[in-house]
Amino acid sequence: MFEARLPQGQILKKLIEAVRELVTDANFECKPSGLSLQAMDSSHVSLVSLLMRADGFDPYQCDRNRTLGINLRTLASVLKCSSNDDIITIRAEDDGDSAILIFESPSSDRLSEFDLKLVDIDNEQLVIPDTQYDAVVRMPSAEFQRIVRDMQILGDSVTIACSKDGVKFSANGEIGSGSVRLKQSSAVDSEDDAVTVDLQQAVSLTFALRYLSLFSKAAPLSPTVTLSFSKDVPLLVEFRIADMGHLRFYLAPKIDE
């Protein structure tokens, strides 16, 4: 049997809200070490990679590896039936064709149970190589969300340039052009408010704003986001999930024809 009880159930709600517009169906890989998911959007331009380690659940039981194919829109609808402070348990019997979701109120006086039919998903898995990135930018996730939203009024692409001075986002469109430049923070009250650029070498890449906008829906998961860039490789956008794992997005760049 597979059973994973998540005391902070709202983490799962935020996760699914963050990926449901990008990916329709996904296989949740359940292993003794934890739960993971890898899925591409339908145009194979972006990829979602989720990891939730077993020690983030309480308790976590996984006797054998299981793949749970789940329609994320259905899952998102079901999760809307839970309250933000509910404890959420995911369970799957060994011979079952469904995943069971249990929502438990903090005082345990309300318990709801939903049985979700599993779906067969033929999903192509990719090997993501370890990469030494040219530049790693860390910033508040709300700032990332704001910049992506602001750039979208200008066009459908953004060029992100990292240098020793900081990071610059710029967009061009029919109505005009604009940019936002963030300097590395010198002194901030909280580390979560800081902008840092860890630079091996200056790099500039262009990306579709539509995908960055979808990624930015993960902002409620974490106060900070990390963007990792290298010349001519996919961008890595990472949100940490409390102390238990991460939600990563990869986005192929736009390249010169």
């Binding site: 331009v45 990719l126 190589p129």
Partner: peptide, 14 residues
């Protein structure tokens, strides 16, 4: 003009 690349150009299938 720039063209959108796909992930298959960078990551190999498992």
């Amino acid at each position: 003009a720039k063209k959108q690349a796909t992930l298959g150009a960078f990551f190999k299938p498992k």
